[in-house]
């Protein structure tokens, strides 16, 4: 502990402060873009798991099981290293050479599809927690299956699952750090780079930690407001994780 030279100035001086801010921007962009994929795909798969059609249910269940039971790091490598080799020559070449920032897009697809499996589980539990009498009443009063979903199950189901969905949203920001293994320069990678250039590990990691804490606080503030607005009056209080 004796020989450590403190130098907090390092994290606010160029070029290191720039690396951190770039890292923050990459983390935010990666998290938001993969969240968009996760939300759309997860909704489709989650709804498919509640449909009467057995093949669609099996397909959706298969998707969820596959993506939930493989570590994100392995999935990251599969998208980045393996997929281009398995595609036809030209497509693989395009992915590796012509696409700008292939590591960013691989990470985006990886986190999007992985988080979709988690979102799907929440969507399914939201739909199944709508009292079955409501759907039966909707069908009995002449609504088609699609209309029942559109006007009854989805609006109610989604409002029930806003709290767990917001925690998935917070989670995707943390999971972006795994993208550093394929060369995405997000927050953690930037702090690691500063550490290896300057040997000021404390300062670099403390800066990264502070950025994550700030992000978490900001997101918590935003999501609390969304939760308050979407809460169904009279429904059981928000589920705690």
């Amino acid at each position: 502990m004796s020989a450590y030279n403190w130098n907090w100035a390092v994290i606010v001086s160029e070029p290191y402060v720039g690396w951190l801010l770039d890292g923050l921007a990459v983390t935010v962009m990666l998290a938001l873009s993969s969240w968009a994929i996760a939300l759309v795909l997860g909704t489709v798969i989650g709804l498919a798991r509640t449909l009467p059609s057995a093949p669609l249910r099996w397909l959706a269940t298969g998707y969820v099981e596959l993506f939930r039971n493989i570590p994100v790091l392995v999935q990251m490598f599969l998208w980045f290293f393996v997929l281009p080799e398995l595609l036809p020559r030209e497509a693989g070449h395009w992915l590796k050479r012509d696409l700008p920032h292939p590591e960013f897009f691989s990470a985006m697809v990886c986190l999007g599809l992985y988080t979709a499996s988690r979102v799907a589980e929440q969507v399914r539990s939201g739909i199944t927690s709508v009292p079955p009498g409501l759907a039966a009443a909707a069908r009995a009063s002449g609504l088609s299956l699609a209309q029942t979903y559109r006007y009854v199950l989805v609006p109610l189901g989604f409002r029930i699952i806003v709290p767990p969905l917001t925690s998935e949203f917070l989670g995707i920001f943390k999971n972006t750090s795994i993208a550093l293994t394929i060369g995405v320069m997000e927050i953690t990678a930037s702090s690691r780079q500063i550490e290896s250039y300057t040997f000021q590990g404390y300062e670099a990691f403390a800066a990264a930690t502070a950025l994550y804490l700030l992000l978490a606080l900001l997101l918590l503030f935003l999501t609390r407001r969304i939760e308050a607005r979407t809460r169904i009056p009279g429904w059981i209080a928000r589920s705690n994780t």
């Binding site: 550490e195 404390y202 930690t209």
Partner: peptide, 24 residues
């Protein structure tokens, strides 16, 4: 709340960096 706000990889880096410093 602290540990639920930061990614595991950052914690791994932190400890990997700190343990030798603390043990000498």
């Amino acid at each position: 709340n602290f540990f639920r706000s930061v990614p595991l990889i950052l914690v791994i880096f932190w400890i990997y960096f700190l343990v030798p410093l603390l043990l000498g």
